[in-house]
Amino acid sequence: MKILVVAEMQLGKLKPSNRATIRMAQDLAAQNGGTFSMMLVGHQIGDAASELNNFGAETLYVIDAPAFEHYLADTLTDAISKLVKEYGFDRVLGGEATTARDFFPRLAGALDAGMCRGVCGLTQVDGSTCYQRPVFSGMALRTERIHTPIHLITVDPTAMGEPDAGGAGEVVPFDAGVSANEGVQFVELQRAASERPDLSVADRVVGAGRGIKSADYLDTIGKLADKLGAAVGATRAVVDAGWLPNEFQVGQTGKAIAPKLYIAIGISGAVQHAAGIRGAKTIVAINKDAEAPIFKIADIGLVADLFDVVPQLIENL
């Protein structure tokens, strides 16, 4: 088995989710007797490459070219496809995210390979490794088997532990032979600046729902988050109302998060939202409706008016 980990950068830094992907590569290699290598793509990424090279990979392929300054599915797929064919990788792993959700299936189309998305566990069925993944808004788990020689896997970053440290692999610059293509051009990234921790990986998250009534109350929610050193997340209702940009959305169609502490404020707990917080260690729900479904998944519940409680929390914490 020859495993390739597609490591990724985000806004100039290594993505934290790479670690979960490397963990799964280490598990797969140990279970099946194989080795894993990694690849990193971007422009002027030398420092990130050496930071990444600490996990016992055989080789680290570095694709460093101006065409990869911005993430684009088309060029990245061409580069990975070339690397996979040239070195005969039969397992390709990446971290589940909006990037991997975009380029992995394209790669599946280009390589005619089977793919499983958002894999949260490995399991043995009749002596071969199968993949477990959430389906139906995370309300069910499905075990899938891939029959093609190449398996494409995206790993749920909230489901895996930390990778083992290891030696550095040989660094091999790889010429993907890909230049900027006129089919798709990057124009810009519209991003709300935030001083708070990154929602995807924060240890503590304060989640705001429609119960906060207006965008004005986000200042108060923000004060609570800052008291806790927490990131702010939101339901779709809040994002749809335009109170926060879409990258704050948690849930089936937003981010899946796994903080140690999630405080859901004025959130009903719809299945699509719950799908994104299943990995949280402790869920606290503050809602004035004792019947709200959020209390079914919460570890700690407080039935009260959030407009009373939140200022008291800011005061007392």
Binding site: A108, D112, A113, G114, M115, C116, V125, C130, P134, G138, M139, A140, L141, R142, T143, E144, R145, I146, H147, T148, R278, I283, A285, F295, K296, I297, A298, D299, I300, G301, L302, V303
Partner: peptide
């Protein structure tokens, strides 16, 4: 088929009771 379904399970529910404060 490239991928087949081997089975289903329900995810482990979140552990235990909700402590109301």
């Amino acid at each position: 088929p490239r991928v087949t379904v081997e089975g289903y399970s329900l995810p482990k529910g979140r552990s235990g009771e909700t402590k109301m404060v």
